[in-house]
């Protein structure tokens, strides 16, 4: 089966900045694919290379198996939902949605019919006559979605589409986008810097850092088995032991350990079976409801955190900031990392 999108050694260089640096990956048809990374990591540039707003400095971008270098955006069967929606202010909502068919020469009545259909799909059927300025942020977001979907693209690109919405609306839209994607069976490429969003919606996630891809994996695997220190920290903020720290702890290889797998124990006492322990001093305790996050400064240097349930916290009663403790974690829960934790 040909991939919907494939990057082969793609780089995009602006002056002396390597925005995308020798990136290769493939996205399968019908997949919900997320590009996750901090700002400036190359994820948006990669999206723009797929849309055709930018051209790679070297390497190839393939859509449906065909190299699209030199193919302008209007000849790619790909549509985009922009971060700020980019709705045309001088057109009504209906005219905005009908814009795609209009520039493709569809008749007036036919494109109005299809635009109304799309507005119904995003539950904005009644607002076709309004101007974008008269809509709320959430409504504009839906208009942008309808406008991008009306051409029946093979791939829908979404550039931080929920970034401007408030938390509650964002969660609603996540569910809606996911079900829409299932219903339409279109490939979604979703750019975000919010790891929660990427993990909850995507079939697979590519983690970008400094123009390169650190890891491409399904959300569960990404969370359970981060390949690099960067992924371990960025996705679910794990504790990372780089080569130096691992050596100080008497372990052979760099590794990551999630805060919820770390237990806080008093200074003295035997280590639990199959566990490693490291001594340190309590820096802060943050209450998070069902659990508390204990920040502990290890004697070996790093600050690690441990998520402690309310029940276990009670057992630690009396330990205040500055108290001496041990952090212990089951050996099996530690995830070995590929590289020496250069980050």
């Amino acid at each position: 089966m040909t991939s919907a999108i494939e990057f082969r050694g793609v780089s995009r260089v602006y002056g002396d900045v390597r925005a995308v640096d020798d990136v290769s990956f493939a996205i399968e048809p019908g997949e919900f694919f997320a590009m996750l990374g901090p700002s400036g990591s190359g994820k948006t540039t990669s999206l723009r290379l797929v849309a055709g707003f930018d051209v790679p400095t070297s390497g190839q971008v393939l859509l449906d198996g065909a190299d699209v270098s030199g193919v302008p955006p209007y000849e790619r069967n790909v549509n985009t939902v922009f971060q700020d929606y980019a709705l045309f202010p001088h057109m009504t909502v209906l005219e905005n949605v009908a814009y795609g068919p209009r520039v493709r020469g569809t008749s007036r009545s036919e494109r109005a019919r299809r635009a109304r259909e799309m507005l119904d799909l995003v539950q904005l059927g009644a607002l076709g006559g309004r101007r974008p300025a008269q809509l709320s942020g959430g409504q504009r977001q839906r208009v942008a979605l309808a406008r991008a979907l009306i051409n029946h693209p093979k791939v829908l690109l979404l550039d931080e589409p929920l970034g401007a919405l408030d938390l509650k609306l964002r969660e609603e839209m996540q569910i809606e986008l996911k079900s829409l994607q299932k219903k339409l069976g279109i490939t979604f490429v979703y750019v975000t810097h919010d790891q929660g969003e990427a993990l909850s919606m995507a079939d697979r996630v590519a983690v970008f850092n400094k123009g390169r891809i650190e890891q491409v994996a399904a959300p569960r695997e990404l969370y359970a088995r981060p390949a690099t220190a960067f992924v371990a920290r960025f996705v679910g903020s794990a504790n990372v032991a780089d080569a130096a720290l691992a050596r100080a702890l008497g372990l052979p290889q760099p590794f990551a350990i999630r805060a919820e797998n770390v237990a806080v124990l008093g200074e003295a006492g035997p280590s639990p079976a199959g566990s490693h322990c490291a001594p340190g001093a309590v820096l802060a305790v943050q209450f998070h409801g069902a659990a508390s996050r204990w920040q502990v400064k290890l004697d070996a240097g790093e600050v690690w955190s441990a998520m402690v349930t309310e029940e276990d916290s009670r057992a630690l009663d009396g330990l205040a900031v500055g108290a001496r403790v041990r952090l212990c974690w089951p050996r099996a829960a530690a995830v070995p990392l590929n590289e020496a934790g250069a980050f």
Binding site: A51, G52, F53, P72, P73, Y74, V78, N79, T80, F82, D84, A86, F88, H90, Y99, G100, R102, V103, R104, R147, A148, N151
Partner: peptide, 25 residues
């Protein structure tokens, strides 16, 4: 905004159509 031109081309308009429907108004 720069992305109006991009949005227009993304939706299938070539340079002239983008000029006529988006930039000119």
């Amino acid at each position: 905004p720069a992305n109006w031109v991009e949005a227009s081309m993304d939706l299938g308009a070539d340079g002239l159509q983008t000029f006529r429907y988006v930039l000119l108004p």
